[in-house]
């Protein structure tokens, strides 16, 4: 167990280091931040001084070394644009993204699993065929377009829901929540649907495929032969056995929900980390970009590790190898 954990940890560190390196070297190609930091009348001398003070004239390995050492201590430097520590910015934005991702994950599960079960059980029903066709749309339409269409329909034409932003938020020390106000909840609806749609269809299709597989197995046939009611067979025996891969996928997808929130956040001007990142790219705000990428990599690595450990706990075969 210990050696297993140690191996995983070592891999994670290598992954983090690689991401940091890639992120850092990528920024050499996004342009010169100085032009976004000064006005057109700023003299050349002042521009050069600024470069020097920001350390942009240091050799790349030195810049990278400084970055790694500081990042390991949670210090990502100061945003070029806002003049405040990047970690403050990221932490201020994190609640918005996490709340959005959380609601989307719940939506995807609560709608995706029942639909998957239904379409597996009533394979040739008209409703199932309709749902399957619609799910294709969900998988193939880009979230950007879905978001715009939702805004157009529910925001502009019907005027039921707000088209952008997070509504009123309530602050608890360092966490701002939109869950406690009517406008906050209303603002959540469109972005969370947009973000959830892809995951929802993915989960639905996964559950359906797994269900079909399990329904064919002997123990289900046997359960039916025992004369158990359908409800019991379908949900107690079949569904339970499909959930293992579903849980894995959902765990991993939570990471992508957070990462892919970028598009949804920029369509809805949702003030989360993704939006911060997109704007940082436009402004060539390198410290924010670096911090964001490392942060997201960290989320993925962390979630992966937890899933690995869960496997270890759940699957007796893995443990058996140790002995």
């Amino acid at each position: 167990m210990v050696s297993f954990l140690f191996k995983r940890l070592l891999q994670s560190i290598i992954v983090m280091f690689t991401v940091a390196l890639i992120a850092f070297s990528m920024f050499r190609f996004v342009g010169d931040p100085i032009n976004n930091m000064v006005g057109q009348d700023t003299t050349q001398q002042e521009r050069d001084d600024l470069r020097e003070r920001l350390g942009l004239n240091d050799p790349v390995p030195v810049q990278f070394g400084k970055f790694i050492v500081n990042a390991a201590q949670g210090d990502f430097g100061r945003s070029y644009k806002y003049q405040v520590p990047v970690s403050d910015l990221i932490f201020a934005r994190m609640p918005a993204t996490l709340e959005l991702a959380f609601v989307s994950a719940i939506l995807a599960l609560v709608i995706g699993i029942p639909l998957g079960v239904y379409t597996a059980l009533k394979r040739s029903g008209i409703a199932s065929k309709f749902i399957m066709t619609m799910s294709l749309v969900g998988v193939s339409l880009p979230p950007f377009l879905i978001g715009i269409l939702l805004i157009l329909f529910f925001g502009v034409i019907l005027r039921w829901l707000p088209t952008f932003g997070r509504g009123e938020v309530i602050e608890f020390t360092s966490w701002s929540t939109g869950f406690l106000t009517a406008s906050g909840l209303k603002s959540l609806i469109l972005p969370s649907i947009t973000l959830a749609l892809f995951q929802m269809t993915l989960i639905m299709r996964l559950v359906r495929a797994e269900m079909l597989e399990v329904l064919r197995t002997d123990f289900v046939k046997f359960a039916r032969a025992r004369g158990l009611p359908d409800r019991l067979v379908n949900f107690k025996h079949a569904l339970k056995n499909t959930l293992v891969p579903v849980i894995t996928i959902t765990g991993l997808q939570l990471g992508s929900l957070i990462a892919f929130a970028i598009i949804t956040e920029s369509v809805f001007q949702w003030p989360g980390m993704g939006l911060l990142f997109i704007q940082a790219i436009a402004d060539v705000d390198i410290p924010i970009m670096a911090a964001y990428l490392v942060m997201i990599a960290f989320f993925f690595v962390l979630i992966n590790m937890i899933v690995d450990i869960l496997y270890y706990a759940v699957d007796p075969r893995l443990r058996a190898d140790d002995e």
Partner: peptide, 8 residues
């Protein structure tokens, strides 16, 4: 409010 996307 800053809104980056023109469509939004």
């Amino acid at each position: 409010t800053p809104i980056k996307e023109a469509a939004t």
